[in-house]
Amino acid sequence: MTKVPPEVLGEHPFLQNLSPEHLRTLAAWSRELEFGRGELLFREGGPATGLYLVRSGRVSVELHTPDRGPAPVQTVGPGEAVGWSWLIPPHRLRFDGRALEPTRVILIDGEPLRAACESDPELGFHLLRRLVGMLAGRLEAARLQILDMFRRR
């Protein structure tokens, strides 16, 4: 487990243009993690760990189903973020996150992050704006998947 310097944190597209001060705040609860192919980053039902920033590799967001086993829904790659359950009660994970290949991520611990967002609304706003952008992207992607646009009519 390695602490992440603020500059490195600032290089990730999700946190680009965040102020050095805010980056320093986040760095205090950030660590770098590595996962091997097939390893779970997080697991449905577990307590929300925090915000994952993917640096390399790919993470499959999936649900485990009794009949089909893991059912992947979306793939998250380098430069993307995953995990927002830490922000929303009851702070419990709703999907599995599995590394599809050797994957390096930065994990920012959810609990202190939530507290920081509450005590520093400016940081909260900047983070939330990024999270909303990410959520909108996921929602749009999910809607297009539901639309099944390649289906033969």
């Binding site: 992947p72 829904v73 979306q74 793939t75 790659g77 993307e80 992207g137 749009e140 992607a141 297009l144």
Partner: peptide, 10 residues
């Protein structure tokens, strides 16, 4: 897995 537009992130 996901729609093609999501690939732009990568």
């Amino acid at each position: 897995v996901g729609v093609v537009t999501a690939l732009f992130q990568q």
